[in-house]
Design a binder for these strands. Structure first.
Length: 553
RNA sequence: UGGGGCGUCGCCAAGCGGUAAGGCACCGGAUUUUGAUUCCGGCAUUCCCAGGUUCGAUUCCUGGCGCCCCAGCCA
């Protein structure tokens, strides 16, 4: 029997199943509606996977729509970056690429319609007055003195707002609902504001722009969205969206809210990410430490890992804090299957094999031990090699299965060596190890049956090369950087360590964007920006699990 | 002291009146020329609390408690 691939159940699927079952809906049309004011992050990935995933599994479609109603913050660079990221994640919006700005004429016509119906009016209070008259959480608001302007006057004023006769802030179009509503969003919310700003798509053809609240629901309606999925903070806005849709008498999408993703040891607000970029605290939106899609891509996280992650964490309405280890596990799961195995030494310690029978001994190393069909490459063992400093200890505990005076260890893909002598510098620091090898152990276990517990990696000092490597760690040292006052205070000073590693020759040919496993160390990806042909620069994507590190504690 | 949500293992999460899935983390143990991978095994008599309905409640009702969101001419 074949194993059924089951998509985890969640409350949104339950709602859709019910809608489909009772005929309330006959198809599923969703959308991912980013504002092009920044780069996408892992939280957006959750929404993208949800929306596109739902459309896919119900045989519907998912639109990519840019919510570009605020020209002051939006740019084409972001539009392009967002498209790139969604496509890279593996989703296809087909012909369904839309912009809120495509609907500006329609939105304007609807605003005029509401004015004519006596459902909207032009207010001329200042922003401060409006705020003062809005009331508080416990007290009702006060009607604006302009609330009962005639339809004619409202129409005239709104048209002149559009024509550019007034400066920013002079007037504003408001919905006439209820200044005493316990839901503040219903206290005559703003619909259109005057903004003499250049829009990234419509240029200067408009100087009034719809508010998100007056645009979003109608955009969904125009596109025939059936299930409008958004995050929890819009729950209290739903009655307003429903009100506009009802007044206008147009198709009503169903809004469903879910809890946004929170990841430990990172921040997720676009404002804070922008700040990190603008203040130069990271190298850019695609800095490999950023929780952005582009940062993770550059770091080497496979798209499949991010998709798995989004599936694994589920969808609910309870505030969720996901542990970073869940993401890392998803990354390792994919990379363990796909990455070729190579050897590289991060912190070198010289070893001389005093009795190597020939100047160089040809060895073979599997490209992937669990996938023999991927072949093997040749490795030349020479008299002088480098091993990892951490693989040697002067006074080693019993359980240390590596090099120590008098102890034996296996050189990965080669032979068994014993540490005979430690050469130290003036400071007493080991600078070189003199070892003797057992020539009978190339591709074989010791003939006398003695067990060699440890295997360490190495790089030939004559055939190896040095390459730049960037060791990345979590960007913040607090689980929740938002809770600690200024989030910048808990940046991890060791989130990036630039170093050089000794690598085996095959590593010179790793293509930009390709990920390999440095055996016993971690997964490393050739940086897509800084690598040159034949000279990759490696980013550490993820470490391997390390039960020895745990044991040490 | 307004309104809207949420509360199942350390972190997520299924469950929809019939006697607590799964993942991550964690702890054992096996295999291993990566202390990796893989593989076995352990990990909530209990579902925020207190009452109630019921033969039976995490699921229904009532009342508490706790947490989150809303007073932008941001989205």
């Amino acid at each position: 029997m074949s194993e059924a691939i089951t998509t985890p159940s969640n409350f949104i699927r339950n709602i859709i199943d019910a809608d489909l079952a009772d005929g309330r809906r006959t198809e599923v049309v969703t959308r991912f509606p980013p504002e092009p004011n920044g780069y996408l992050h892992i939280g957006h990935a959750k929404s993208i996977c949800l929306n596109f995933g739902l459309a896919e599994s119900y045989g519907g479609r998912c639109h990519l729509r840019f919510d570009d109603t605020n020209p002051a913050k939006e740019e084409d660079e972001y539009v392009e970056a967002i498209k790139r990221d969604v496509a890279w994640l593996g989703f296809d919006w087909g012909d369904h690429l839309y912009f809120a700005s495509d609907y500006f004429d329609q939105l304007y016509a609807w605003a005029v319609q509401l004015i004519k119906d006596g459902k909207a009016y032009v207010d001329s209070q200042s922003a401060e007055q409006m705020r003062a008259n809005r009331g508080t959480l416990t007290e009702p608001g006060v009607d604006s003195p302009y609330r009962n302007r005639s339809v004619e006057e409202n129409l005239d004023l709104f048209e002149r707002m559009k024509k550019g006769e007034f400066p920013d802030g002079a007037h504003i179009l408001r919905a006439k609902i209820d200044m005493a509503s316990p839901n503040l969003n219903l206290r005559d919310p703003a619909m259109y504001r005057i903004l003499h700003a250049e829009h990234h798509r419509t240029g200067d053809t408009w100087c009034i722009y719809p508010m998100y609240d007056f645009a979003h629901g109608q955009e969904d309606s125009i596109e025939g969205i059936t299930h409008s999925i958004c995050t929890l903070e819009f729950e209290a806005h739903r009655p307003l969206y429903d009100w506009f849709i009802a007044q206008l008498g147009i198709h009503a999408p169903q809004q469903i809210e879910f809890a946004r993703l929170n990841l430990s040891y990172t921040v997720m607000s676009k404002r804070k990410l922008l700040q990190l970029v603008e203040e130069g605290l990271v190298s850019g939106w695609d800095d490999p430490r950023m929780p952005t899609i582009s940062g993770m891509r550059r770091r080497g996280y496979p798209a499949a890992a991010i998709r798995n992650f989004c599936e694994r964490i589920g969808v609910g309405k309870a505030d969720a804090w996901i542990d970073l280890s869940v993401l890392e596990d998803c990354v390792r799961e994919v990379l363990n299957e796909s990455a070729l195995r190579r050897m590289a030494v991060l912190k070198p310690l010289k070893v001389t094999i005093t009795n190597l029978p020939q100047p160089e001994v040809a060895c073979r190393g599997a490209n992937h031990p669990q996938q023999p069909e991927r072949g093997e490459r040749e490795l030349l063992l020479t008299r002088e090699i480098y091993v990892e400093r951490d693989d040697f200890m002067e006074d080693a505990p019993r359980k240390f299965f590596r090099l120590a005076p008098g102890r034996e260890v296996r050189l990965r893909n080669a032979c068994v060596v014993r540490c005979d002598e430690v050469i130290k510098d003036d400071a007493g620091e080991a600078v070189e190890l003199l070892c003797s090898c057992d020539p009978e152990t190339f591709g074989a276990n010791p003939a006398d049956g003695r067990k060699i517990k440890g295997t360490i990696h190495w790089v030939s000092a004559v055939h190896g090369r040095q390459l730049p490597v960037r060791i990345y760690d979590r960007l913040f040292r607090e689980e929740n950087p938002d809770k600690a006052g200024d989030f910048r205070d808990c940046l991890n000073p060791e989130s990036l360590l630039e170093t050089r590693a000794w690598v085996e020759p095959a590593l010179l040919e790793v293509a930009p964007g390709e990920t390999v496993q440095f055996e016993r160390t971690g997964y490393f990806t050739a940086d897509a920006v800084d690598s040159k042909p034949g000279a990759p620069v490696f980013n550490r994507t993820a470490t391997l699990r390390d039960s020895w590190a745990k044991l040490k504690k």
